[in-house]
Design a protein around this nucleic acid. Structure first.
Lengths: 311, 311
DNA sequence: TTGAAAGCGATACCAT
DNA sequence: ATGGTATCGCTTTCAA
C-alpha cells in the first residue's frame, strides 16, 4: 500500500535511519492507519529473539509472589517484552517441564524461588538464559536479598526487648530461602546469649503456622521468628484463638512484609524483602545478558505491633 | 536421524495413526533422545494456532486476581497452552494497547474485570477471540457470578440479625462489578424494610476502606457491606483503631472471599465468588470456541465473625 | 536508497 | 505409508 517492497517496510519500521525520510514517513503512516504490527513469532523465527520472557513461580496464592510478578511484568513491558507466567503449585517435579515447554518461545527465563535440585537447575540454565530470583547457585545470575543482615536486625530487635529464648519455625526443606534463613539465624545467635529452638518444617502457608502454634506455646520461648509472614499470621491466629496475648505473652516476627502484615491486629513485625525491585532486577539481568552477576538487595526490619518486651 | 523426511516426523508426532507403527516408534525415540520439541512459533505461522493464551488483570496485588490467574493458568496448561500475563495497574487506558500487543501471539484473550468502556471492548473482541471474566457485555462470551443472588443472601443474613440501616461502600465507578453490586443491592433492599445508605466511590483496596470508615461510623447504620474484602478489611482496621467493636457495635460484610478473610480477627463474613473456577471456565469457553456463551457461576455467603445482631 | 530472493522451522497438500 | 515442496510473515544478505 505504500508502494514499496516488504524489505523497505521492515527497514522503515526497525532501522529508520537507512531509508529516505519521505519513504519512511509514508510507510509509517500507512502502517499506523492499518494498525499493522509485525508478527513477533515470524520475526523471532529469523532473528532468534522472541521479545518474550518466561516467569516461573511456586505459588501465586502466596502474596509474596504476585509482587514479584508485578515487578517482572512491569519492567518487561517497559523493555517491550511480553511475559509468560507459569505457576508450579509448589511441585518441584513440575518445574523443569514447564521451563522447557516455554524455553523455545522466550529470550530468557526468570525462575522465582525454584524448588528443584541444584544439579537440575544448572542443566536448565545451560539450555536457556536464566536468572534466579530468591535462589542462588554458582555460575547462574541471581537476585537475592541480604538475609544475614535481615536476620541480624531481627535478632537485635528481640534482644533489645530482652528476649533470651527464641523459636524459629522452619519452612519447606526444599526452599533455599529457608535454608539461608536457618543458616543466618544460627550464625547470628551463636555469637549472642540467645537460645534458639527450631520447629518445623511446615508448609509456607497460613495453615503451616496454625499447625505448629501449639508446639511453640508448649516450649518456653518468649519470641518466635517464622519462616515467612503467612506462617507468622497462622501463629497469630492460633494464639488469638488460645487466648494468648501478642506481644504480651509472646512476640511474633515474620519475613517478607507482604501487604497483609499491616492489615492484621496486632500488625506484624517483619523483615521486609524487596519484591517488585527483585523482579525488576531479574529482568534487567536477563536483558542485559551480562556475565553471571549476583545482586543482593537490602532488607529492612519493619517494627510493628506483634513484638514487645519479653514477659 | 531417523532416516525419514521432515514430513514424516511431523506426522509421527502429531498424527500418530497415519504412520506405520515401526516408523512412528523410531521417530519418537530419536525425538525423545534429542529432546526435540517442535518450535511452536514456527508451527503457529502455518497452522494459525499458537497454543498461547493471553490473560489481562487489573491488579495482581488484589488477592482476588491471583486466584483467577491460577485457575486460568492451570486449565490452560492442562490443555497444553501457555499463558501470557499482563497487569494493567488499574489503568483503563493501558488495557487496549496490551491486548493488541499480545493479540498476534495468542489464540485468544481472557480479560479479567476489564475497566475499559463497552464500545472499545466490543471492538477489541472483534479483533481477537475474547472471553470476559467478571464483566458482561452483549455478544461477547463471559463468565460472571450470580451477584443478585449473593446480595440477596447477604441482605437476608443481615435482616435476620435485625439490621434495618445498612451502608454500602462503593468501589470504582469504572468497575462493572461495582455497578452490578449496587444494582443488585438496590433491587434487594427496595422490597424490604431495609434503609440503604451509599458511600464512596473508593479505591478497591485496603486504604479505600480505611479512608471511608469514619464517614460510615458517623452515619447511623448498624451494618456495612463493602465493595470487596479488601475494602472491608480496611473498615475493620480503622474500626479497631477507633475502639469500635465488630460485630458488637457494627457488622461488616465483604465480597469475594479472598484467603485473608479467614485470617483476620474477627474473621470476615463475605460473599464467596468463584475464582479459580471462573478462570477455568474462561479458558474452557475460549478453547471450545462455542458461540457467545454467558456462564453465571453460583455465589455463597460465608458467615463468620464480623457480622452479628444489630445493637 | 531500494528491491529480489533466500531462509528461519514447521505443516499440509499433492504425488508416489 | 512416505517424500517433495509450497507456504506461513518476517528479516537479511546481495545487487542494482
Amino acid at each position: 500500500m505504500a508502494g514499496v517492497s516488504t524489505a523497505t517496510v521492515t527497514r522503515a519500521l526497525s532501522s529508520p535511519e537507512v531509508v529516505r525520510p519521505a519513504t519512511r514517513e509514508r510507510v509509517r503512516e500507512v502502517a499506523a492507519s492499518l494498525g499493522y504490527h509485525p508478527n513477533r513469532a515470524a520475526r523471532g523465527l529469523i532473528t532468534g529473539r522472541t521479545g518474550n520472557l518466561g516467569l516461573l513461580v511456586p505459588d501465586l496464592a502466596n502474596p509474596f509472589f504476585p509482587s514479584i510478578v508485578k515487578g517482572v511484568q512491569g519492567r518487561a513491558h517497559e523493555a517491550d517484552h511480553a511475559v509468560f507466567l507459569a505457576d508450579t503449585d509448589e511441585d518441584p517435579a513440575a518445574e523443569a517441564g514447564l521451563v522447557r515447554k516455554l524455553a523455545k518461545q522466550v529470550d530468557g527465563m526468570v525462575l522465582c524461588s525454584p524448588r528443584m535440585a541444584e544439579a537440575e537447575l544448572r542443566e536448565l540454565a545451560a539450555e536457556v538464559p536464566t536468572v534466579l530470583v530468591y535462589r542462588r547457585i554458582p555460575g547462574v545470575p541471581s537476585v537475592t536479598a541480604e538475609f544475614l543482615d535481615g536476620m541480624r536486625q531481627a535478632v537485635s530487635h528481640l534482644v533489645a526487648l530482652s528476649h533470651k529464648k527464641i523459636a524459629y519455625v522452619a519452612g519447606p526443606r526444599s526452599s533455599w530461602a529457608n535454608r539461608e534463613r536457618v543458616r543466618s539465624l544460627r550464625a547470628v545467635t551463636r555469637k549472642s546469649e540467645v537460645e534458639l529452638t527450631e520447629f518445623g518444617n511446615v508448609a509456607p502457608q497460613f495453615h503451616g503456622g496454625v499447625s505448629v502454634a501449639d508446639s511453640v506455646l508448649a516450649s518456653n520461648v518468649t519470641a518466635v521468628i517464622a519462616y515467612n509472614d503467612l506462617v507468622a499470621l497462622g501463629l497469630l491466629h492460633r494464639f488469638a484463638a488460645r487466648g494468648v496475648s501478642v506481644p504480651g505473652d509472646i512476640s511474633v516476627l515474620g519475613f517478607d512484609d507482604i501487604p497483609l502484615a499491616e492489615m492484621v491486629h496486632p500488625a506484624l513485625t517483619t523483615v521486609a524483602l524487596p519484591k517488585e525491585e527483585a523482579g525488576q532486577a531479574g529482568v534487567d539481568l536477563l536483558l542485559d545478558r551480562k556475565p553471571a552477576v549476583r545482586r543482593e538487595l537490602p532488607t529492612q526490619l519493619m517494627v510493628r505491633g506483634s513484638t514487645g518486651p519479653a514477659r
